[in-house]
């Protein structure tokens, strides 16, 4: 039985490959695939993702090897960045409720 954390990692991998397989190289996200992924999967976190300059900026930030697409390793940076942003917010939430039961 996979744990919650293992299941979470698994689902991040699945999400990436589901969108990466739509067009272009199958193991990487094109700009359009990244945009669809963010619109469908991160609409609660990234309210301003409709702004086309946001997606360009994120794409540029993520594309560490400069090949114009986002591979899984580069996608992980997005996950890390979002986790760091959420950490502060969940920490405050937890402090206010004082419960550690998930």
């Amino acid at each position: 039985m996979p744990s919650e954390l293992e299941t979470a990692m698994e689902s991040l991998i699945m999400v990436f490959h589901r969108y990466a397989g739509k067009e272009g190289r199958s193991g990487t996200l094109t700009r359009r695939e990244l945009r669809t992924l963010m619109e469908n999967e991160l609409s609660g976190f990234l309210k301003s993702q409709k702004d086309p300059t946001t997606i360009d900026r994120i794409m540029k930030d993520l594309d560490a090897n400069g090949d114009g697409e986002v591979n899984f390793e580069e996608f992980v940076s997005l996950v890390v960045g979002l986790s760091i942003a959420c950490e502060a917010c969940y920490r405050t939430q937890l402090k206010n409720t004082q419960t550690w039961n998930l």
Binding site: A8, E41, F45, C86
Partner: peptide, 19 residues
């Protein structure tokens, strides 16, 4: 995907128990 990120964060926070 947001749920998966939340799990990643929460697993750490609950293990750290407020620290």
């Amino acid at each position: 995907m947001e749920g998966a990120i939340k799990t990643v964060v929460m697993q750490y926070l609950s293990s750290a128990r407020g620290k």
